[in-house]
Design a binder for these strands. Structure first.
Length: 648
RNA sequence: GCCGCAGUAGCUCAGUGGUAGAGCGCGUCAUUGGUAAUGACGAGGUCGGGAGUUCAAUUCUCCCCUGCGGCACCA
């Protein structure tokens, strides 16, 4: 029999007969390793303990101590055990797919009756029983005709469809957990008893379309989380509890920032505190953009559909626009308008006024553009995904050869803003050509190359987001994360060759002829609404001093200090600090607690002593102790602290 | 938009086929208290909206609206 050589992580190599499995290799090392082993890595590939190794290779054998491999296997096996539990409880349920995801797994089932919360508990119990059976996990490679026949016989149509989608040259792997069977690429644990029965939890049921296609069947997806041990699960659940406290919807109420109500779904009623954050952020962005060479404009809210037809949005997005019809009785002729869902067509109208010269390019045009989109009801989410929002929008009209440099300049601009706002790091995704698009491949090649070059020149290697570009051009997406780890696209930078064409934008070049400019769509915050949501969550409500809506509360300890409290408050206000007096008939403990819960960054307590000394007792949010400081000093230092980062 | 769950006082929530309750908050009074809740009293609800069943619906049924968790979508 042919021999192969396996090289271990310590560099030692040993010969084995070809076709040896990691299980046999482990058994050759020690009994305990053979028992503890969960999988192997063979030539960099995660490998099942049962899979034969045919050629010389490097090999590492994993136990539960190897986090990456252990977690992947645990979650994958949990998914199988869960599916087995479901089918043993409800034999008519059809199985589909069940992948590993961050922190856990899900499995999609086809079942007529909905799974209830009580069902989850029943399934969990069944899963524990299955784990206790310590059933051996077994795998075989089948040819596809046999597999198809098998699943047809078992009335599992989804599996048949999956097999048909697998490329013909790939082996089909069949797995058995005891007598339960699934099609799966593996690897898996050696037996179900290797699963930590006390370290998983089924979290929720949700609908999910078969193959992610909204025209196909709605399946029921059960989500679970799983870890190596009970502590891992406990830590995860605790993290979720903590994240819930940072939810912007909760903090928005507690800090009295905004509210939403039925009469205006997806739109925000900004309260004074929230609006202070908003305007502070807008003032900052306005200064930054002015410094960045932008001209600011403003354009109409209600625009005739003719313009949307010309831009191409009517055809593609009509369903998602708020339509405004003007009645014939009130107008000479009936006109159909739409609330603007975006600003770009209007910006082209401004560009088109008068003749533009190549000397005007690049022309950087910005607008705090208030937009309305009829977003699908299920998409709405707090203030992060809304129907009425304001973009810090901008369009750069430039020549093709300026795309790369303008992109580079923009990435630097955005990085500065994000850094100023406390986001030291952010993710950049590069979304390239989608299947449905306009423009030649040659143009797309150039646009994609320009974006990539500029991104890399800025020292950023973007994540690839294939096929997710806009229909008119590729884009960079600047992604931030909310409290529970969901991604939100905030900034964006997109190349557009189409709109200038459709709306007939042009400039006179050096050759005296008309040329078509390229448009770069870009938004830094994205929308104020979404960005503020992210800002609140990432700071857990404890916003940086300059942007905190209530910066200082001056609290009287005794009513004899009330007049002095007013003096202190006035001095701070004169110094550009948002300060409030609290002279209510309450104890200082009460006031400190209330303002701390309200996330006020600085509380200045004053009693008899402070009145005499012209001082204050300062307590910063989150600190246990207070410091006594002279009034003049605190006014000076807080005045500086209240300045936005670009003004320091 | 689709699947599931939910909607009771400003907030967090309990509860029932016979028109409702707690804590916090709010108001009044007393208290002048030194860094995360002083005490007493009081006001406050068309039980998301509409229809149906019933002698009687906040409770049961249906429809709608809104929210939440996913999925799909995101110019």
């Amino acid at each position: 029999m042919a021999q192969i050589s396996l090289t271990f992580p310590d560099g030692n190599a040993r010969d084995f007969p070809a076709g040896v499995t990691p299980a046999e290799v482990a058994a050759g090392i020690s009994n305990s390793l053979a028992k503890k082993a969960i999988s192997a890595t063979v030539d960099g590939k995660h490998w099942d303990m049962q899979w034969p190794i045919e050629n010389n290779a490097s090999i590492a054998i994993h136990t539960m101590r190897d986090d990456v491999q252990a977690l992947e296997l645990i979650r994958h096996d949990f998914a199988h055990v869960m599916a087995r539990a479901v089918q043993s409880l409800w034999p008519d349920v059809k199985v589909t797919i069940g992948p590993v995801i961050e922190n856990g797994w899900y499995y999609d089932f086809d079942r007529k009756e909905p799974f209830s919360t009580e069902d989850l508990a029943t399934i969990e119990k069944k899963m524990k029983e299955i784990i206790n059976l310590r059933d051996i996990v077994r795998t075989e490679v089948w040819d596809r005709a046999r597999a198809v026949a098998f699943y047809e016989a078992n009335n599992e149509p989804y599996k048949v469809e999956l097999i048909e989608a697998i490329p013909g040259d790939e082996p089909l792997r069949m797995y058995w957990h005891g007598d339960w069977q699934d099609l799966c690429r593996g690897p898996h644990l050696q037996h179900t008893g290797q699963l930590p029965a006390d370290a998983f939890k089924l979290m929720s049921v949700a609908g999910a379309y078969w193959r992610g296609d909204s025209d196909r069947a709605m399946l029921q997806r059960i989500y679970g989380v799983g870890f190596q041990n009970k502590e891992g699960l406990k830590a995860h659940l605790h993290m979720l509890e903590e994240a819930a406290k940072r939810d912007h919807r909760k903090l928005g109420r507690e800090m009295d920032l905004f509210h939403m109500q039925e009469e205006a779904p997806g739109q925000i009623f900004w309260h004074p505190n929230g609006w202070t954050i908003y305007t502070e952020l807008q003032d900052y962005m306005r200064r930054k953009q002015r410094a960045g060479g932008y001209v600011e404009v403003n354009t109409p809210q209600v625009v005739d559909r003719k313009l949307w037809e010309a831009s191409g949005h009517w055809e593609k997005y009509q369903e998602h626009m708020f339509i405004v019809e003007v009645d014939e009785e009130h107008a000479r002729e009936k006109s159909i308008n739409a609330l603007k869902p975006m600003n770009c067509p209007c910006h082209v109208q401004i560009f088109n006024q008068g003749l533009k010269s190549y000397r005007d390019l690049p022309l950087r045009m910005a607008e705090f553009g208030s937009c309305n989109r009829y977003e699908p009801s299920g998409a709405l989410h707090g203030i992060m995904r809304v129907r009425g929002f304001t973009q810090d929008d901008g369009h750069i009209f430039c020549r093709e050869d300026q795309i790369e440099s303008e992109t580079r300049i923009y990435i630097d601009f955005l990085s500065e803003v994000y850094r100023d706002l406390g986001f030291e790091s952010f993710r950049v995704k590069f979304a390239d050509r989608p299947e449905k698009r306009t423009g030649s491949d040659e143009i797309w090649d150039k646009a994609e190359e320009a974006l990539l070059n500029a991104t890399r020149a800025a020292g950023i290697e973007p994540e690839m987001n294939p096929g997710e570009g806009a229909f008119y051009g590729p884009k960079l997406e600047f992604v931030l994360t909310d409290a529970i780890g969901r991604d939100w696209q905030c900034g964006t930078h997109q190349v557009d060759f189409v709109l200038p064409e459709r709306l007939d934008a042009n400039y006179i070049a050096e050759d005296g002829a008309k040329h078509r400019p390229v448009m770069l769509h870009r938004a830094t915050l994205g929308s104020f609404e979404r960005f503020i949501g992210i800002l609140i969550e990432s700071h857990a409500g404890k916003l940086p001093f300059w942007i905190a809506p209530r910066q200082v509360v001056v609290a009287a300890i005794v009513s004899d200090a009330d007049d002095y409290v007013q003096d202190v408050t006035a001095a701070l206000t004169a110094g550009g600090v948002r300060a409030e007096a609290d002279v209510r008939n309450e104890k200082i403990n009460y006031k400190v607690r209330e303002h701390s819960l309200g996330k006020v960054p600085v509380i200045l307590a004053v009693g008899k002593k402070e009145v005499e000394d012209r001082s204050v007792s300062m307590r910063r949010l989150g600190e246990k102790h207070s410091t006594v400081i002279l009034l003049d000093e605190i006014v000076n230092s807080l005045s500086v602290e209240a300045k936005a980062p670009d003004l320091l």
